[in-house]
Design a protein around this nucleic acid. Structure first.
Lengths: 294, 294
DNA sequence: AATTACATATTGTAATTATAAAATGCAATA
DNA sequence: TATTGCATTTTATAATTACAATATGTAATT
């Protein structure tokens, strides 16, 4: 009846933090530092740390705080698979997306109708609807009900999306403020190489999709212009919904990753115009081959 | 205690509808047609028509519906100034924007704090906050409270916005799907001419700003790509908040309108590349001269 | 055949709680 | 001096409910 806690998310965030920072066994995890990093108070961080202690990832020392019991590399495998790792996104959101894509939901729907259909409380439904509205594929009608926009379902808008991405990313790279971030380039290179050298056969669809998006968002972030980055992030959130329904053609991934690496090469060689042009055709090339299930 | 009605908005919409369609006295206003146009049911439309009847704009004929009593041109002046014409946007939203721009609101705020400060109910506050979140200049923190982003307040992001607009609009015009809409061009020409021939001295700041935005959005709409159009609309909603605080330099308006007309000329002459390049410098030129009050 | 008028069904909002969670101040500790 | 541990204050949410507004089916009217 009270609100649901954020501390499970903080738990997951701490694990992620430990991994990306490649921390070692014995390192200290100061409470306030974690709180600042995740923009919450110390309270939920403490709750999360207590849980991690029961999981054996950290151990508490009286009046000194929590310390890692194992190296970052070992952390994930030690995590018990039983507990829901990260909740962050309400499954209801995905159910609505699926049903809309599958044509099970009419263009206009009322809140009560959806509450009955999914058997959820209004508050929870509204949260998902607001999120969807923020992503731009549903909107409140002036009177009762909501209306889906065709963003997700039409072939035409799917193609428009690719054009938009290609233009934004190319232009972002051509901005005078564009400046490659060495550290990020290094990481991206590592990921793309791993993906190209076998990862494309074993990684999950979600992992592949995430790696791809992060590559492109990293490039746009180098433009140092938040409006370009926001625009790309916005459309990528949409893409995720549609592309999950497309069987990934894994045979194309080696070529994709080598193209990604080629882009990094060109940028680092200072051949920005070439890189931007290549990026454009790289994106448009991806759109022509896949076929959305609509 | 129950919800607030949409019918006042419908009332305003009907007046607008009558004017933009240049309807004449005696013309019929079918209920269902209006309901479809505004995407509501007949109920609020009937309520609005009843109100318009008391205002003398329409008259009811039994079993035949409502009919205009005057020509569209006369409608607005006949509207009693006493009633709030159109509410649509909660003033609370603007108060928050003003206070944030004036630096009266910290970067982090809690809902209760804002409720006390503005003396409003939570439900109303949340509506404004959600709208602001959708516009991208505030975000929910994971725990309690909300955090403003620097979108509105920093000089840097103000300039980034101009770059984004210039790029998007130029590129939209260069898309192969771009196709000028004759009717819209004609209307835009009329508005810009009126503005250039004296309107720049008499129109209100809001009217000038609206005309300018509509011109640019019309151009982008011709690209037939909703992602480009959405991106521009999104950033224009932001701009409205900031530019309201800048004293319009009316002496620049004749030049601005003549540039707008020049763009229309170039497009209609089929010189799209030139038009797009000119559009780019037109937008960037505007950014350098104005100075935001921050 | 289209539209209205009216009766009825349905919908979403605003107000009001109880309550768990988050935030925070401060003494104790390393 | 930085950090923890703990007690206290503050915050936001989920569940309920009443009711005005919206939506809609249908007979009557033109």
């Amino acid at each position: 009846m009270a609100r649901q806690s954020v501390s499970p998310q903080i738990t997951a965030s701490i694990l992620e933090f430990v991994k990306t920072n490649e921390m070692r066994a014995g390192e200290h995890l100061p409470c306030q530092m974690l709180a600042d990093a995740f923009r919450v108070s110390r309270a939920p961080v403490n709750a999360a740390l207590k849980k991690l202690e029961t999981m054996g990832v950290v151990r508490a020392e009286p009046n000194r705080g929590y310390f890692l019991t194992m190296d970052a590399a070992k952390v994930e495998t030690e995590t018990p698979a039983g507990e829901p790792q990260r909740e962050e996104e309400d499954p209801l959101y995905f159910r609505i997306a699926e049903d809309r894509l599958a044509g099970k939901l009419e263009e206009r729907v009322s809140e009560n109708e959806l509450m009955r259909l999914y058997d959820v409380a209004r508050s929870r439904l509204l949260k998902s609807l607001h999120r969807i509205a923020e992503e731009g594929w549903i909107e409140r009608l002036p009177g009762n009900g909501w209306a889906f926009r065709e963003t997700l379902t039409s072939r035409r808008s799917y193609e428009e999306g690719y054009v938009f991405r290609a233009v934004i990313e190319q232009q972002a790279m051509l901005l005078p403020t564009f400046r490659p971030n060495e550290e990020e380039f290094r990481k991206a290179r590592a990921v793309q190489t791993a993906l190209g050298e076998g990862g494309y056969e074993t990684w999950s669809r979600a992992e592949i999709f995430k790696a791809n998006n992060e590559f492109h968002e990293m490039l746009v972030a180098c433009s140092q212009n938040d409006f370009f980055l926001d625009a790309i992030k916005r459309i990528n959130r949409l893409r995720r919904l549609i592309e999950y329904h497309i069987t990934i053609d894994r045979s194309r991934l080696p070529r994709q990753t080598s193209e990604h690496l080629h882009i990094l090469d060109l940028v680092e060689a200072g051949r920005r115009t070439e890189a931007a042009a290549f990026l454009y055709t790289h994106i448009m090339g991806a759109s022509r081959i896949k076929t959305p299930r609509v």
